[in-house]
Amino acid sequence: MITTPPKHRAFSPWRIHAIASNALLELARLKVFYFLLLFALLIIGSSAFMMEFPFHEQFQVLKDLSLGAMSIFTWLLAVLATAMILPKDIEDRTLYTILAKPVPRVEYLLGKLLGVLWLLLLSTVLMSAMFALALATKEHLVVAQTMREMAHAPQEQLQAALRDVHEHAFTSSLVPGVLSIYLKAAIFASLTLLLSTFATSSIFTIIVSFVIYFIGHVQHIAREEWLGSAHPMAMKKVFLALVALLFPDLQLFNLVDDIVAGNAIQMALFVKTVGLGCAYTFVYAFVAYVIFAYKEL
């Protein structure tokens, strides 16, 4: 018996949610979370290795190593997960079965991107929790050691020493640091999705993403040269403009170095970083949609 199907909606968050959840499930069942074990081993190993260092160095190395590893892992995850998600659907013809349903292409693409962004969020939260746990454990050990060593010292001296320990342990500036790491990964997920809409293979997408990662770290030099130099050669000016306009400025998202060095992150800088991160992610996703909308499958 044929009944009336549900009324079609031009844009449905429910359909996007279904595609995003499926993408997240796909990545989770591919066991991509195993890299978290590697992260845990890294911070536990480094904590054991630093026992002989002064406590402020121990905190600094732990923060440096953990935030650095988080940055690399989330970026790698963003590139590798996104690079395979679209070509695999095309190769397996699963894409045909989805787009042959009343699903607009923009919802399909948005769903896939959201799935990867959820995966990155989950990974960042889990790594942050491990990092916070390692930091809290280290703080607890250092506090206990300080109290043992200063058992006979005057109360004021002990309190000052403990305050010093707490100031070197968890600081609120770690939060913007972690957020900037997530934003950088989100930009790369969006950029890799854009590349995979016209790339002929996942390998091509991954290699180009890696190259863009390195270009992104020197983009500011090209931008300054483009905007600053008065009379450069026309060809050079065009080249510099292309680099400055097409590639993201990844140096803007390097808040981690300042945070590890103990410098406070100003609110204005943080808001600018978040805004730029969202803008880059949106622009790359929008261009990906424009290409995908006209792609012959």
């Binding site: 199907p5 279904a18 499930l25 013809r93 699963t94 042959a100 349903k101 699903v103």
Partner: peptide, 27 residues
């Protein structure tokens, strides 16, 4: 409804999950 030649679908889903997924994207 469309069935392509030699479809693979999502190998990580069970038969029931596959139909849930396609049902959800159809509202």
């Amino acid at each position: 409804g469309f069935l392509p030649e030699n479809p693979y679908f999502y190998k990580f889903l069970t038969g029931e999950e596959t139909l849930f997924f396609y049902g959800k994207i159809c509202g």
